[in-house]
Write a protein that binds this DNA or RNA. Structure first.
Lengths: 221, 221
DNA sequence: TCAAAAGTGTTCGATCTACACCCATGG
DNA sequence: CCATGGGTGTAGATCGAACACTTTTGA
């Protein structure tokens, strides 16, 4: 019999770098190694629901951006028995996150996406796939916002994109493009206590996004 | 216990339209309905391998472009028991295809991708996902070639892209772009017995593609 | 008054689009 | 010699990269 699990690649953004939330496994197999949070799939839960539950259990967050990556199913990916896994990636605002309950016994760690420790099973590959998918998705859907607090500056946003894509972007052009899209609302607020001209804080215009989406618009960075 | 199956969306190109290969189910559940070819996953086969086997059994073809779409796992997607499915899509040259053995008992049919009959389970949704994924993939990897015979004209190729993307493309610009990419080899041959200027036949330059890929090139239609 | 980062104007070249035109073949 | 689809040249618009510049704040 083939068993099925669900694993989550949880991305966060901190100190201008893209992070992944990993756990230290407290049980065999691969006890002690770092790994993606996940669970076995049970008969009464959809796979998407199962990913939501995993996310909730570990971060205590609801209503998070969550998208399937793909299924991984090589015969030898898991020791001892046949387990295929269906992987999801999530984008969260690291400020809202609070490590909780079910996972307190384990060590939780935000790791740099390009400085990963040794990982259990094929989780390294899964994270690579997740990052690759994110890189693509981010170019034609405005999902980068999910990694930021509700209010953010344009520089914050640019840094998110630079961290995800691992390239430098031109400030002038980045701002011009974002302006054209009309997806940002000026909150009227500004940064405080910064030793330079304070940046305007924006928020993402969810309604405009839905509207543009229906018109067949697509976000192009 | 959750069971796992693999389903294949097999795309072909004929009469200037994009087609999907469907079977008529000979057993319950959904006996008599049209559906995607697929199989249950067994313990000793990778999911990719299982998709390859399905493809081989139904088309007798090897070494085909085959890519995972995603897993579908709503609780009620399959009647009577819990079955999740992992879906793949394939691109084949319809001329090479020969319906064979394992499936002779069933009716096989190439259906227009936008005139689908009533389908079993959630296979309608799976095909829609496949088409959506194909639309995206085709814009940054030169996979359209897989739907054509070894030698083809530029008009053939343009029609493939128009059928996949369901839009009209400008002849002049399409050709200019393809020229820039240097992915085509002039075979020196021409069409015969056509009542107009015969078109030059090209083939896809596999080596050049690999080389460009390593250099980080990306095909942009 | 200085450093630091926010924010803007503008030029230049590449790319995309649209249209017009010529070419080779069978009937 | 005509209809048909193959194949090309080019002007104008649009887009993106790059650079230099002004602005506002805290120290």
């Amino acid at each position: 019999m083939v068993e099925t699990s669900v694993d989550c690649v949880i991305f966060g953004f901190q100190h201008e770098t893209l992070k992944v939330l990993l756990i230290k496994r407290k049980n065999d197999p691969s006890k002690g190694l770092m790994a993606l949070p996940g669970d076995f799939l049970d008969e009464k839960t959809s796979i998407y629901g199962s990913a939501e539950n995993t996310l909730k259990k570990i971060t205590d967050l609801d209503n998070i951006f969550l998208e399937q990556i793909q299924a991984f199913g090589r015969v030898d990916r898991y020791p001892g028995k046949r387990v295929i896994t269906i992987s999801y990636y999530a984008l969260i605002n690291i400020e809202n996150y609070s490590p909780t309950a079910g996972y307190t016994a384990e060590k939780l760690e935000w790791c740099d996406v390009d400085k990963l420790p040794e990982l259990a099973f094929d989780h390294q590959r899964i994270i690579e796939s997740a990052h690759k998918k994110l890189k693509r998705r981010v170019r034609y859907e405005p999902i980068g916002f999910n990694l930021l607090p509700e209010e953010f500056s344009l520089t914050n946003l640019q840094q998110v994109y630079e961290a995800i894509l691992q390239i430098e972007l031109n400030k002038r052009n980045f701002r011009t493009k974002l302006n054209q899209m009309k997806l940002l609302i000026d909150t009227g607020k500004k940064q405080k206590n910064v030793a330079h001209k304070p940046a305007i804080l924006y928020k993402f215009d969810e309604k405009m996004y839905q509207q543009l989406k229906e018109e067949g618009f697509y976000f192009k960075l």
